[in-house]
Design a protein around this nucleic acid. Sequence first.
DNA 1: AAGTTTCGTTGCAACATATGCAACACCCAT
DNA 2: ATGGGTGTTGCATATGTTGCAACGAAACTT
Lengths: 252, 252
Amino acid sequence: MSQTVDRALSILPLLAQGPADLGQVAERLGVHKSTALRLLRTLHEHGLVYRQEDQRYRLGARLFALAQEAVENLDVREIAHPHLVALNDRCGHTVHLAVYEEQEVLYIDKVESRYPVRMYSRIGKPVAITVAAVAKLLLADLTEPERRAIAEKLDYPMYTSRSTPDAAAFLKELAVVREQGWATDLGGHEESINCIGAPVRGADGRVVAAMSVSAPNVVVTAEELLTLLPLVRRTAETISREYSGTNRPKKV
Amino acid sequence: MSQTVDRALSILPLLAQGPADLGQVAERLGVHKSTALRLLRTLHEHGLVYRQEDQRYRLGARLFALAQEAVENLDVREIAHPHLVALNDRCGHTVHLAVYEEQEVLYIDKVESRYPVRMYSRIGKPVAITVAAVAKLLLADLTEPERRAIAEKLDYPMYTSRSTPDAAAFLKELAVVREQGWATDLGGHEESINCIGAPVRGADGRVVAAMSVSAPNVVVTAEELLTLLPLVRRTAETISREYSGTNRPKKV
DNA sequence: AAGTTTCGTTGCAACATATGCAACACCCAT
DNA sequence: ATGGGTGTTGCATATGTTGCAACGAAACTT
């Protein structure tokens, strides 16, 4: 763990929230302005940070290029995408694809129902890990000690009265999900939104990604949403088959 | 310029080419293995780098998350987006939005005609700078010495027989674009694809982004596409107005 | 199975490098 | 003019980073 690099990298999420000037960066990093300046300069040279005309800093172009390459290396996404679209065509609801990476669950694709162009809205943002259907699916596939370790490290915010309250309940839920091969989130994150999900598996049977369909209560009830379960599971299995079949052995 | 940070950041483009193990990273950085290890660890803690099962490193999904968050905060894009969609609704063709940054032109938004969900495909990727209509528009707005400096640094790949052949031709084209306030790419990148574009200007009149409409020959001829020019220019002007109007004075 | 190579990891001492300070330069407002 | 607000530079100190060498573990050979 390198202190200097650590500080420099801490600037990135800070700037992701919006442009900031030198003083703000220094303050939020807890370092002297001159130090912040030099770190920013280095980031700037690598194109990760951009300096706009008012001299404030924000994230730069190269970061986007890198991110693009990073996501291209996730070939699950490419394979899954057309199937997610097809699913969206049939049911009309929002479809998500997520992966587990380093103690986090991240959406890597999304097809939205009403506003097809508003796709970016949440991709890349960390998922509410204790309640989301995709998170349960991904965590349920870890080994028992891993699950336990993570469950105990997590916070359990009560987004709603139906949110997972604590580690014990979470582990129990994971066991259920693990056995039944699918997962739900019924109003656990937002009171009026329900969600059903299924796992995408690699050739060795391990879960490499998870997909879900979300819809608000006002459109369909939880019961109606659950009738889509076979369709969702079938889609996930189709993706799994294609992913395990056409792929080079060692990936993601 | 911080050496430590500089080395750490140099790892990212290196990994963008594909996964690498510790030894490879150390060698290509020209540092000792232990040094590379510590740098990688720091990158890892910030999620920029992911360690796959065979212990090799690759770019992490967090990068994607950061970029995503940053893109959301780019307000040109937010303001322009609905107008791009409206334009797409009317003409049916692919619509692009691009910005210039640090010697590069990048697409930051795209509304595609046939495959509305395939939006991600190229966003964030550098544009073919010597031929694309949006690139001409963005570069044409720079000062004369800047244009000359860039034009001389560029390569001029002959994608097709109509591609811009050299710096002289490029500068001449920029002068034309600058004066007429719009640009075209008629088969300069791909033989069968034509493109027309217009600039988005900020409060001070400077070009902050450029938009374009693209369509293949088989759908509409170049002449037919040109009839859309007034519509495209009007859209760009609408975005410009909204952008300069509702915003605090100093912004990208 | 034992030997051998390869790769990742750790502790440590020496050095190089990042740090905070203080002073300067600059712009905008009063 | 003058004051507060920026961003920027040179410098001496010491903090943090570096390479080394040795360890451990796993993979491959024999």
